[in-house]
């Protein structure tokens, strides 16, 4: 504890002495983290768009022509009891026909030519968005098809599969990019601290001969890495915030009627980013110093 002022003083002094190389390191880290933040913002926005889309996703259960009123009631009861569904809407044969008439507009005369209503009654079901996994929906549809009175179950299989693929790709991309940035930031700090440590080799040797503990020798270097990473994180967080503010301001100015809203990183993220930078750099510094032998 008594040595903490010394560690801080030494680390800050060394940072100042090697200011240019440190500045480059900080900028490299901030660029790396900025790429990650930008990707996170893009992912966040795409995710919110996907969520909006998925709200409209529904399944249509067509009732068999031979199904009795009782069968329909049973089906309704079953759907109501199923917690997977958010909304259940029954559409009778007549309502279906009216819908088609509306959709056809002036061409609805064609319908009048048909004497009997060919449209089946149906249930429109809205699934919870968290359940929109292709395999789950497929098995759900297959189960419903087995139910008494059900003629056909339809849903946007292709659409759901695409939606899922986009979401999965984004998640994998985030993991790969996050890992790549983690390695990059760690390596950048590692290289810088390794250079410093090598340059001060004689100083380290003297400290060892004077009886300094490993921690006494290592601490200033770890602090240097910590400062570099934190500063890199702060710069990237500040840049992403400024960029967001600028973009939303511009959109508001030019397209006020659009009421366009961009999903933004949560406030916690602006605190986490510098901490993440500090953590990654700390690991880099620790590896760079390596084992100290007496």
């Amino acid at each position: 504890m008594k040595s903490i002022p010394y560690y801080l003083q030494t680390a800050l002094k060394n940072l100042w002495i090697e200011k240019w190389i440190n500045l480059l390191t900080v900028l490299s880290i901030s660029i790396g983290m900025l790429i990650l933040c930008t990707f996170s913002v893009i992912t966040l926005n795409l995710d919110s768009v996907l969520k909006q889309w998925s709200k409209g996703f529904g399944m249509v259960v067509y009732i068999n022509e031979q199904a009795s009123k009782e069968d329909e009631e049973n089906l309704k009861a079953l759907f109501m009891a199923d917690k997977d569904f958010l909304e259940i809407k029954y559409i009778s044969k007549e309502e279906a026909l009216t819908g088609v008439r509306k959709a056809l507009g002036d061409d609805a005369i064609i319908i009048d030519e048909i004497k009997e209503n060919p449209l089946p009654s149906s249930f429109e079901l809205k699934l919870q968005s968290k359940l929109l996994v292709p395999e789950y929906v497929k098995s759900k549809a297959a189960k419903m098809k087995q139910m008494a009175g059900v003629a056909e179950v339809q849903y946007g299989e292709q659409w759901l599969s695409s939606l899922n693929k986009i979401s999965e790709t984004m998640q994998k991309g985030a993991i790969v990019l996050g890992l790549a940035i983690f390695i990059a930031v760690t390596f950048i700090t590692y290289s810088t601290i390794k250079i410093f440590f090598h340059r001060r080799k004689e100083e380290v040797e003297t400290l060892k001969l004077l009886g300094a503990t490993k921690m006494f020798i290592k601490f200033p270097y770890l602090l240097e890495g910590l400062f570099i990473g934190t500063l890199g994180g702060i710069i990237s967080a500040a840049t992403i915030y400024s960029a967001y503010s600028f973009v939303t301001l511009r959109i508001g100015e030019f397209l006020p009627s659009l009421n366009f809203s961009i999903a933004v990183l949560p406030v916690q993220a602006y605190i986490i980013i510098p901490f993440a930078g500090a953590f990654m750099s700390l690991i880099g510094s620790y590896i760079a110093i390596g084992r100290i032998k007496y």
């Binding site: 060892k208 001969l209 004077l210 009886g211």
Partner: peptide
């Protein structure tokens, strides 16, 4: 380290830190 702290050494090449 602790052992060395009990010993004072005057090195032939001084080993002073120039900075």
């Amino acid at each position: 380290p602790r052992y060395r702290r009990q010993i004072g050494v005057v090195f032939q090449d001084f080993k002073l830190l120039n900075n």
